[in-house]
Amino acid sequence: MTAARRRAVWIAFLLAPALVVMTLFVAWPLLAAFRYAFYGFNGLAAAQFVGLQNFREVLTEAPFAAWTWRAFQHNVIVFTVLMVAQNGLAYLIAFALLKTLPGHRVHQVIVFLPVVLSAVIVGFLWKLFLHPLFGLVNQALLLVGIHGPPWLGDESTALGSIIFTNAWHWMGFPALIFLAGMQRISRETLEAARIDGATDRVLMTRIIWPLVAPSTTIVVILTFIGSFNWFELPYVMAGLSGSPGGATDVLGLYFYRTAFGNVSSGLQDFGHGSALAVLMFVFIAVVSALALRVLRRREIEA
């Protein structure tokens, strides 16, 4: 074997395992997901080509359409509230950590601690805390004479309770991404602003905010993708059907239920499931791409 030939074999050997795994378990399934959306299924087998029928049914026809749009609205709420509350708080905490006051390292470790825990642990923990009678939250409210609602059992509070749990779980993540962005701003810029008499409020809103634009881009995109793939927390806290009465049903739960069936019915419907997956995929990809363009332009202007 010539040296060049031997090197070619060596390169192929290095690339082969990763390429095979990626092809089998990422590229092929992704292409297949698009194909399946155009088929009617008979169990595990794609039985007949049905064109756009699956899409039409999940978007416009009963009973699917009502479920689809309800779930979609809930995802929009999840995204909006997390953006404002979770990420707003994260920005504030990042600013506080930027001061490098005594103990700031310990605070960094603390704020990130829930992030490393499984959503299953966090979900069950807060489900116990939110129990109407014996949960920590209502027991604490009782100490000040308030009878708290059955948080997860009431349609008006269930989704909010799960969003709150998500914020508790994940807040440290955007906080430390913001902090990393703030730490990249040059000391001179901050000093100059301070000498010009900028207060902390001005510093936070007029100087730092535009300069952490790259971090904001990441946080917005990740929060968006996370909110529209939301599954584990609502599954653990509210169950597969988004109880009570669908008040916590989101696209992730609805997609899973459609594809793999309810625990009770056990019916699989891969055709409609695939159509939902494709719609979610396209929606997430298109909106992320558009948002990325807008946010990147904002980064340059800053």
């Binding site: 690339l15 378990f25 092929w28 399934p29 297949a32 997901a33 793939n229 499931g273 979610m280 997430i284």
Partner: peptide, 23 residues
Amino acid sequence: VFLFFLSGLMVPLKLAIIPLFIQ
């Protein structure tokens, strides 16, 4: 080849769960 790997960064694999299950 590099681009092929990079494109995987953008794919939420959860949404390909049905073909993965069949595969």
